[in-house]
Amino acid sequence: MNIIKNYLDNMFLGLPETEDVKRAKKELLAMMEDKYNELKNSGKTENEAIGIVISEFGNLDELAETLGIKQALENKSDIIHVTYEEAEKYIEDSKNIAPKTALGVFLCIMSPTLLLLLLGLRELDALQIKEDRLIAAGLTALIALVAAGVSYFIRYSSILDKYEYLQKSVFELDYSTEQAVRSAMAQDEHSYKSAVNTSVILYILSILPIFLISLLLDIDGASTISVAVTLTIVAYATYNLINKGGINNACQVLLQQGDYSIKTKSNKTLQTISKVYWLVIVAVYLTYSFITQKWGISWIIWPIAGILYVIIKTVAEEKQ
């Protein structure tokens, strides 16, 4: 039954949602469902029933004038059509690129850990080296890791550049391609969900080193090192999530779900906000950290910025 609903949703894709259109959709769906149920009761298989219902549905052009969607229907034919081959290639490429992107992110998150580790060891008096030398070594490692991470992004993201339109503009898939994408997503679901579970558990556990060490031990050096441990756990959890999320993300893009829904895509304000937002956060993080040298605490901006982003996004969507 879902297939029929999806078929109908697809036909109405990109058309204005006026009261007349909504009513037409509802009534057409009722007719199709009645027909489907009766075909099933008369002994047809699910596939046969769906085939007959879809082949006898007709053409939206017939409703254009009555529903006042003539103009919209004409514009609709300008909508990009994504073929089966394109969709398949996109999923394949996303799957191959995911581990590289994941590694890039991993390196970036790991970048301050050596600095933290060295500073912590010095505070514990385990290292007898001058502080400015430590900072120099730690910062060198930080910059080297960020550079390595970013160069990874640049090298591999260019492969996905040609698919940017899938994330940004509204397109349509034909019925069989959509089914193929759905089945690819279902096949990957188990592996994806267990990766999400593992990562979520790790994210929660990652807070433990900071809390336990700073609460129980209350030694300056130990708590600085605990931040490095936390960052390492966060880095691995994120690596795992991105690495195993390639197929799922590609399928979401293709099915125009979640962050890639038609509603979000048509919300230009939100797109601008999110672009500027993350640039500002990066700038604030780097400026604050370099000026105050409080690398041990400044990373807190990331989880806070993440939560704030979700709130801003929800508000912006509500306003639409």
Binding site: A24, E27, N59, L60, E62, L63, T66, L67
Partner: peptide, 17 residues
């Protein structure tokens, strides 16, 4: 003769108006 759903619905709307 099998009437298409879209044909039927557009006839309904036209006759209703």
């Amino acid at each position: 003769y099998i009437i298409k759903e879209t044909t039927l619905y557009s006839a309904f709307k036209r006759m209703e108006s």
